[in-house]
Simulated assay, not measured.
Amino acid sequence: MGWRCAGVGWPSGARVSVLRWEGGRVSPLALGKGLGFRAEGARRCVGARGNTCPMGAMVPGRATRARCPECARLDRAHSVAADAVPDDPRTYRVYLAWFGPGMTKVGITAEERGPARLLEQGAVVFAWLGRGPLMAARRTEELLRAALGVPDRIPYARKRAVRAALPGPDERIAEVAGLHRRALALSGWAESLEPIAFEAVDHVGVFGLDGLPAADAVVRELVDGGAVAGRLLAVAGPDLHLRTARDGIVVVDTRLMTGWDLVGAGEGEALSVPTAGVREDGVQGGLF
């Protein structure tokens, strides 16, 4: 019986990510170290809101959220992202997150979480814009989308495609700074939202992106008996970048690992799961 993965986590105040396991165990993800695992059995629903799925339902291998339809609905019913709890009394922050040239998004996160949300998304650079009540933060987020055309989502395929060719720190920060100035100059900000002066946070070093080679492939899904193994080069958001023994640089989205029972595999073991190529436009190619 293997351990059941619960995804990547960034402990509060830590600069090193961990793999989380059901039951509360964690495994540090040390860059430069070997990492290998093999999936066993079937992928099962992880439940919702801390509750076990009553059906123990199977879920598709390519789903990035390992929940059955019923558990997904329960999780969504209590989600701030879905505006399901508009009376949340916590203070929220609005942020700008940069993932590559021309790829900046706006979002909100509970102030008590600090930068965890930005680390979880793989934000290469980020800056806070303002702080205040939930709905004021939400209105400001919508203002930026409408007035400046800043999206609230950027596909992970696009993020992965540019990580090995990022510009230098000055150029990265300048793009975020320019958008921050334009955002603060907009009229229509919610009165209860307090603007925050510009201060950029750069995660290139934390993620291990300096000198990162371009990815050759991305794992499409895990399968029963399928192995993934290699040397860990970078961890950005949910993505692990591995140098494999035979298949070059391979990216594993750890969201595809949740719901599986995993056992150890040797660092040099051959990749034996379905993969796809990575194109420069961030669109994944067919299986090979």
Rank of each mutant, 00 (worst) to 15 (best):
T109G: 07
L35Y: 12
A174I: 01
D170C: 00
A147Q: 15
G237T: 01
L233C: 05
A157E: 13
L74S: 09
V8F: 03
A66L: 05
R67S: 10
A127V: 01
A276E: 08
E267Y: 04
V124L: 07
G282S: 01
G34N: 01
E280K: 07
V278Q: 01
D253V: 07
D253I: 04
V8S: 04
R181A: 15
L186W: 10
A127T: 07
G264A: 12
V106K: 10
T140M: 14
A190Q: 04
P274A: 05
W21R: 09
V201K: 09
G24A: 03
L166H: 09
V252W: 11
N51D: 12
R20H: 10
R246P: 00
A217C: 02
R246G: 03
D224N: 06
G230K: 12
A185N: 14
V206R: 11
G61R: 08
R243S: 04
A57S: 15
P155Y: 09
A245R: 14
R76P: 00
R145Y: 10
G47D: 11
P167Q: 06
G285I: 02
D281K: 00
A127G: 00
E120N: 01
V106S: 09
R131V: 07
I249T: 13
R73M: 13
L19Q: 05
K105V: 15
L19E: 07
T258K: 13
R38T: 14
R73Y: 01
L118S: 06
G102L: 11
N51R: 14
V201L: 01
A245E: 02
E191V: 12
P101W: 02
F126N: 01
V85L: 15
G61W: 11
L35H: 04
V273Q: 12
H78C: 10
L233P: 04
L118V: 03
C71F: 14
G7K: 07
A200H: 02
V263P: 01
W10I: 00
R73Q: 14
F288L: 13
I249A: 11
A137F: 06
E142W: 11
Y156D: 15
P115A: 06
G149A: 05
F207A: 14
L19A: 05
P28L: 13
G61A: 15
P274C: 11
L193E: 11
V252Q: 10
E40A: 08
E22L: 07
W189M: 03
G268F: 08
G50Q: 12
A217V: 04
G149V: 06
G13I: 05
A215E: 09
G24C: 04
P151I: 11
V8E: 07
G286E: 14
P60V: 07
A136G: 15
P28Y: 09
L119W: 03
S79H: 12
G230C: 02
R20A: 13
A165L: 11
E191W: 06
G282H: 02
E111A: 13
R44H: 09
G102M: 04
G205A: 02
L166S: 08
R160S: 02
A97C: 07
V46N: 08
G2R: 03
G114M: 10
V278M: 06
S17Q: 06
R255H: 08
E194N: 06
A245H: 03
P89C: 06
A48I: 07
S192G: 01
